[in-house]
Design a protein around this nucleic acid. Structure first.
Lengths: 197, 197
DNA sequence: ATTAAAACCTAATGACCCTAGGATAAGCCT
DNA sequence: AGGCTTATCCTAGGGTCATTAGGTTTTAAT
């Protein structure tokens, strides 16, 4: 009987595929084992358990998404870069809904694992460099990074949850939101003393 | 033996409490039953199953959050209203993390149930009225509503997932993001033809 | 008091997570 | 080539959980 040739990565990838097809909450050890033609218990050699598997899927997704964004924004600047950044973010979430939701779980990941996967860190760094053209100084830059990331994630998340049902196409609102973000970044409001009203 | 006096609402509330304490993913039929001093099977009289329970928790949370926001924004307008709106949104998420994550699951809720709970609908309507002072015309108004909701939800969601770790306090970024949103809403960019760069 | 409708329980099935210990394939060394 | 080592994969089994079916008891209405 030939061996299945499993590795942690293969198990993770199978879990990720399953997540995109049936939803992350239906990714079970048993289901992954079934798809790999293997008994459940065999997976525990490669993966610590279900929690660990979920964490690995999340890191895989973060890596993949970061790479897509890096490719899309390479050689662009300003609004061009912002739109490429945002569109590839959203495209990844649409193409891989299960993987994307995996990135949202506040799971405490094996630190040894987290060190090797640079996805999340690089994702934030990419956002900083993408905003470079807007010439913001700290701490405004950090605030802007957080605002942009919040808006993109929030939009995609609400969209996935069916929050924009039946009305104006989400597509159109997305484009306008990016326009708005761009305009905002170009005229980032000065420090405090916001005038009321 | 006295009867426990269960109702669908009591079961839902217990599930919601549990969600805030141990996380939504650990809300199980068994755990809810244990806390109520009842056998698992007894819950199925009041609730269709775990999916249904989760949906009910989500609707409860939406209702509660909407009420808080409505109270906070009553009698306010402009930036004052925006800040009150956003702060109470975030405060609810912090006070009830389990309930809040329940609102994110794209669960298909019993339509008969969804009709009675007006939370999600009213939440969106509230956002529209909160933005009234900025005098936007459709379809910009809808886009602005979606932008604001996306940003608030995204910020809270990333914050909960530990996305803003160790650097500048989230509190400070939050305040600046609201400043920025306010500035943006006051000068919402005109329709199309965004200048590149 | 009788009866009807619930609420609640016992019992049982099947899925799933995970551990422990045994068998076996793959590569390595001589 | 043959034996040793190692890691892979399996069999077995215990525990939790979701869910259904059917019985029993409380509650309240007639």
């Amino acid at each position: 009987m030939a061996r299945a040739g499993l590795t942690a990565d293969r198990v993770t990838l199978t879990g990720a595929e399953l997540a995109d097809e049936v939803g992350l909450e239906h990714v079970t050890m048993s289901a992954v084992a079934r798809r790999l033609g293997v008994k459940d218990a065999s997976l525990y050699v490669h993966v610590r358990g279900l929690e660990d598997l979920r964490g690995r899927i999340a890191l895989l997704a973060a890596d993949e998404k970061t790479i897509r964004i890096a490719e899309a924004t390479a050689g662009r600047a300003g609004k061009d870069a912002l739109v490429a950044f945002a569109d590839s973010w959203r495209a990844y979430a649409h193409a891989h809904p299960g993987r994307y939701t995996a990135t949202q779980i506040p799971t405490q990941i094996d630190p040894e694992l987290a060190a090797r996967a640079a996805g999340p860190r690089r994702a934030v760094e990419l956002t900083y460099s993408m905003l470079r053209a807007y010439e913001l100084a700290e701490p405004d830059l950090t605030d802007a990074v957080r605002l942009v990331r919040s808006t993109l994630h929030g939009f995609v998340s609400l969209e996935a949850a069916g929050g924009f049902a039946h009305a104006r196409p989400a597509e159109a609102s997305w484009a306008r939101c990016l326009d708005a973000l761009h305009a905002l970044l170009e005229r980032w409001p000065a420090s405090r003393e916001g005038d009321p009203s």
